[in-house]
């Protein structure tokens, strides 16, 4: 059964460290070009259609800014 996932990033708390992007097995998560009020780039879904909701990005996030949602399709 296939899984479809999506993430929501708390943009103001994200520090743009990029550990999530390095841990995404399907290269969904990337960093934005724009920055938040602290000057950090933010994690976002560059390819939302490929997300499986595996929670790897959120598990390694040091600042707990990622919430993961998943449905069976």
């Amino acid at each position: 059964m296939a899984m479809k996932g999506a993430i929501v990033v708390d943009r103001e708390r994200c520090k743009g460290c990029g550990v999530c992007t390095a841990n995404c097995p399907v290269q969904v998560v990337a960093l934005t070009k724009e920055v938040n009020s602290k000057g950090y780039p933010m994690a976002y879904m560059a390819h939302p259609e490929a997300c499986t909701g595996c929670t790897n990005c959120a598990t390694v996030c040091p600042d707990s800014v990622i919430t993961v949602y998943r449905v069976k399709v």
């Binding site: 479809k4 996932g5 909701g53 959120a58 707990s64 919430t67 993961v68 949602y69 998943r70």
Partner: peptide, 11 residues
């Protein structure tokens, strides 16, 4: 997908 009932991981 982003609905409370589908949440699998959060803070």
């Amino acid at each position: 997908i982003i609905k409370p009932e589908n949440k699998v991981y959060g803070k």
